[in-house]
């Protein structure tokens, strides 16, 4: 292969294969290499960028590994107390109905400490979008059991595996909120392969588009890996996710146009 491409050629617009959206800042991501959070950030920001919504968007960062989302997303952002993002988003959207508002939350944030805020915001049919990154664990605090941790799954606080008898069963928040009349579009996606990323981005785009029509809550779960918390390599964690997480948290739309499309 002799025809190496020069720097000048690379910079030519027609040769650009991929350009980072300006809505992602140049700050170095604080996520572990291989973690799904960064990809989820990027596709969300690409959607906001492509829809020309930067100047109208207000995002809420949670408490969790993505607590610093505001360092990476180049939109106006607020950082919420653990689990309270939907309360912030509710008020923002009520006070500024023409803004695009999203909360970005982990599974501990959304499905444990913030369960009440999540369910009530969904039940009131608040017109914002929830991006729910479910990695079945508390990543930030070092891999403790989350409400979403699978049966038998090991974590630092379920070192012999989650025993549902004493530790409860994994909680399917997405199926739960889909049953509430206030949710309009509820879907479960993943970001572990290029094809999955494309699908997840489409789903986020759909959610943000629907938000403009003020039809109710739009809710996108992203099943993701936590290679650090799961104590696996990134590659192994994605494989483990496909084999173990997806059977319990099956991908696909759960509610479309306000109607359940799947038995929950």
């Amino acid at each position: 292969m002799s025809d190496t491409i020069t720097k000048e050629q690379i910079f030519k617009p027609e040769n650009i294969v991929y350009k980072k959206t300006d809505l992602m800042t140049d700050n170095v991501l604080s996520y572990c290499p291989g973690c799904g959070h960064g990809t989820a950030h990027r596709i969300l920001m690409e959607v906001i960028d492509e829809m020309g919504l930067q100047s109208k968007t207000i995002g809420i960062a949670p408490v969790g590994c993505s607590v610093l989302a505001y360092e990476f997303m180049n939109v106006d952002m607020q950082q919420a107390a653990h689990g309270r993002a939907p309360a912030l988003a509710t008020a923002i959207k009520r006070l500024l109905p023409d803004k695009t508002v999203f909360s970005y939350q982990g599974d501990g944030d959304l499905a444990a400490i913030g369960t009440a805020e999540t369910i009530h915001a969904c039940n009131r049919g608040e017109n914002f979008t929830v991006i729910f990154v479910n990695n079945g664990i508390y990543g930030m605090t070092g891999g403790q059991m989350a409400p979403t941790t699978l049966e038998g799954m090991k974590s630092s606080t379920s070192p012999y595996g989650r025993d549902p008898q004493s530790m409860g069963h994994p909680l399917k928040m997405t199926e739960l909120v889909a049953q509430l009349p206030g949710t309009y579009y509820v879907t479960r996606q993943a970001v572990h392969t290029p094809a999955a990323v494309r699908k997840a981005k489409k789903a986020i785009r759909k959610a943000i588009e629907l938000q403009q029509q003020k039809v109710g809550m739009t809710f996108v779960e992203v099943v993701s890996n936590c290679n650090s918390g799961w104590k696996m390599t990134p590659v192994d964690s994605n494989k483990w996710m496909v084999e173990n997480m997806f059977p319990f948290y099956p991908l696909g739309d759960i509610k479309v146009d306000g109607k359940l499309v799947k038995e929950v």
């Binding site: 919420a80 309360a87 008020a91 500024l96 009440a116």
Partner: peptide, 17 residues
């Protein structure tokens, strides 16, 4: 709101704007 916890955090969101 569904609780005082939610109410005070709604204030946070609104005040932040």
């Amino acid at each position: 709101a569904e609780s005082e916890v939610a109410a005070i955090n709604m204030l946070y969101g609104g005040a932040g704007c």
